[in-house]
Amino acid sequence: MRRDPLRYVKTGLAIFFAAVVFLFLDYTLPYKQTVRITNTYNRLTDIGANSIFYASPDTGTVENSKGQRDVRFIDTVRPNGKVYVYRNEDTGWIWPPFFKYDSSNLHSQATDLKSTSDAPKWVSVTSYGWRIAWLSVYPNAIKIKPVDGPDARPTNWGAQITLVILGALLFLIWRMWNQFRERTLSPAARSVDEAFDRVGDDARQAKGRLSRWWSGLWGKRG
Rank of each mutant, 00 (worst) to 15 (best):
R2E: 12
K10Q: 14
G12R: 03
I15G: 09
I15M: 11
F16H: 08
F17N: 10
A19W: 06
V21M: 08
F24M: 12
Y31L: 02
K32S: 04
Q33D: 15
Q33W: 01
N42M: 14
T45R: 03
D46W: 04
G48C: 07
F53D: 14
A55D: 06
S56F: 01
P57A: 11
K66N: 15
K66C: 03
V71N: 02
V77W: 04
N80Y: 06
G81H: 02
K82L: 14
V83M: 12
V83C: 09
V83W: 07
D90K: 02
G92V: 01
W93I: 12
W93K: 03
W93S: 13
W95H: 07
D102L: 01
S104W: 09
L106C: 06
D112P: 00
S124F: 00
T126L: 08
V137D: 05
V137T: 10
Y138Q: 03
I144R: 00
R153P: 06
A159E: 11
I161M: 09
T162C: 11
I165Q: 10
I165P: 02
F171H: 08
I173C: 14
W174V: 14
W174C: 15
R181H: 15
E182W: 02
S186H: 14
S186F: 12
P187I: 08
P187G: 05
A188N: 10
A189C: 09
R198D: 15
R198V: 13
G200P: 00
R209C: 11
W214P: 08
W218N: 12
